[in-house]
Design a protein around this nucleic acid. Structure first.
Length: 459
RNA sequence: UCCCCAUUAGCUCAGUCGGUAGAGCAGGUGACUGUUAAUCACCUUGUCCGUGGUUCGAGUCCGCGAUGGGGAGCCA
């Protein structure tokens, strides 16, 4: 029976016998004794294995390469040396999988850029061990948060025929022969395609989520999302995971309240339930991370109207590269100024001009703005985008007509406004951006196991 | 997609005024009774990103391309 290292350290006492398995991170040997840093992925520190000369295969153990897979029978003992409280005194060491000097992970610090080229091996490093433990636990925490609030978890489609959601470029899904598709009037004839129409990968589960919200009240989605934009930044990926709650009988204020409660919950969760990994990030990735997250968990998030934000930017006395004018979208430099200089923490920007937002957002009584919100956080930027949805059929239809959006393909969406329509609101949270924010990691490619970005689909 | 920067040993980098390359780490061998990315001694390692040009001579200068990084746009 194998024991996980984290469990052994948490529940073990001196003299407890166990069998552990894992991979050697480093080996330090001398004439009479050898030390193996053994990791099994269950904690950041691993455990120090002590191998004495009395082992039958002591000579062989001293030649084990970095990265080798081992099974070790032994007992937990208090460490006589500083550096760790416990260590594991080996009785037998079995080499399960050898590793030679060509193993790409060396006993030294590697750059994240290099590790991206060996993404199949990087989960065996300290940083990526902590990143993916945090990511996994956060995913569970997200489900727990919504389950505790009686939100229904709904799996919205990955393949969709809606290409007018306004959220981004679709990846095409087709079984047609790319070299010689059937054509009609010179264009590919998608009526002969697998689904009998043009289809793509989802850019958002929101529209379908709204339908479920109008049956179950409160719902959320949590799944992969695809955007075919040629974005080359540290914050964008072509495939990422998004959490999208949607609440019926709720307005924009309810939406922002939920978002704030959600982010704070996840901050507290990370601090409490991922303490050892968070400590690692604080020491190795971003000094002051713990304090920053603690402050967010205790903060009241600012709520600033777009119009007020424009006013404050104009009166700031700061010179920006891009113009600040009512009706124009906020640029990254403006968002950073607001969250970092004006607020010094997370800030909601509310009620944007309707001209720069999506068709489904609810039109405000002023006739100029819509009930939209973005949550801006220092470092990562926009982490949440949401809105109250336009629930009035006539206004929604008029807006679609105004923007030239065909209504027929979205007849089902409009139907939700035809019978039993009600005010409702929701938002989208980028899961990777959340992991970045909580870990201090600065590139989205380093918080997703095998990143998909323009020109990259390895592994 | 646009702007800027980079690409030299397995990794991280230095390389002066244009004269055929060097350090640290990793790795190998040996030493060491307790190490913490062990330490000490010795040793190995090069398509200087590719391509075309200038030049007696190019890692170094110029053009083009590729890849990576930072910033911007798009957005989560």
């Amino acid at each position: 029976m194998k024991t996980r290292i984290s469990e052994l350290l948490a529940t073990g006492s001196a003299g407890r016998g166990a069998t552990i398995t894992g991979w050697a991170r480093s080996l330090r040997s001398s004439k009479e004794v050898a030390f193996i840093a053994l990791h099994d992925g269950s904690n950041p520190s691993g455990i120090q294995v002590v191998a004495g000369r009395t082992l039958d295969n002591f000579e062989a153990v001293c030649r084990i390469g970095t990265g080798a897979a081992l099974q070790i029978d032994g007992v937990l003992v208090e460490s006589p040396a500083t550096g760790q409280q416990w260590e594991f005194a080996a009785n037998t060491i079995t080499l399960i999988g050898k590793s030679d000097e060509t193993y790409p992970l060396q006993k030294k610090r590697h750059s994240f850029e290099y590790l991206r080229t060996i993404a199949h091996l990087r989960p065996r490093t300290n940083t990526f061990g902590s990143v993916f433990r945090l990511r996994s636990k956060l995913a569970h925490a997200i489900h727990r948060f919504f389950a505790d609030k009686q939100f229904l978890y709904v799996n919205t489609p990955i393949i969709t025929a809606s290409d007018c959601e306004g959220a981004g470029e679709l990846f095409r899904v087709t079984t047609l022969d790319a070299a010689a598709p059937p054509t009609v009037q010179g264009q590919p004839d998608f009526s002969q395609d697998f689904f009998g129409q043009r289809t793509g990968l989802t850019v958002s589960g929101q529209l379908e989520g709204e339908l479920f919200a109008q049956a179950f009240g409160n719902i959320y989605t949590f799944g992969p999302t695809f955007r075919a934009e040629n974005s080359n930044t540290a914050r964008h990926a072509s495939e990422f995971w998004m959490i999208e709650p949607e609440m019926a009988f709720a307005d924009l204020a309810d939406d922002a309240d939920l978002a704030e409660e959600f982010i704070k919950y996840l901050c507290r969760f990370a601090l409490e339930e991922c303490a050892d990994d968070m400590l690692f990030f604080d020491r190795q990735i971003e000094h002051g991370l713990l304090e920053r997250i603690q402050r967010v968990a205790a903060a009241d998030f600012a709520r600033i109207d777009y119009s007020e934000a424009i006013d404050r930017l104009q009166r700031s006395g700061t010179t920006f590269s891009y113009p600040v004018e009512w009706g124009l979208d906020l640029q990254t430099e403006h968002e950073r100024y607001l969250s970092e200089q004006v607020v010094g923490g997370p800030a909601f920007i509310l009620n944007y001009p309707k001209g720069i937002k999506a068709f489904y957002m609810r039109q405000n009584p002023d006739g100029k703005t819509v009930a939209a919100m973005d949550l801006l956080v220092p470092k990562v930027g926009e982490i949440i985008g949401g809105s109250q949805r336009e629930e009035r059929l006539d206004l929604l239809q008029a807006r679609m007509l105004e923007l030239g959006i065909a209504t027929e393909p979205l007849a089902w969406y409009l139907d939700s406004r035809r019978w039993g329509s009600c005010p409702h609101a929701g938002f989208g949270l980028g899961f990777e951006r959340l992991v970045m924010y909580l870990s201090g990691m600065e590139n989205i490619r380093d918080v997703i196991p095998f990143p998909r970005t323009p020109r990259h689909c390895e592994f």
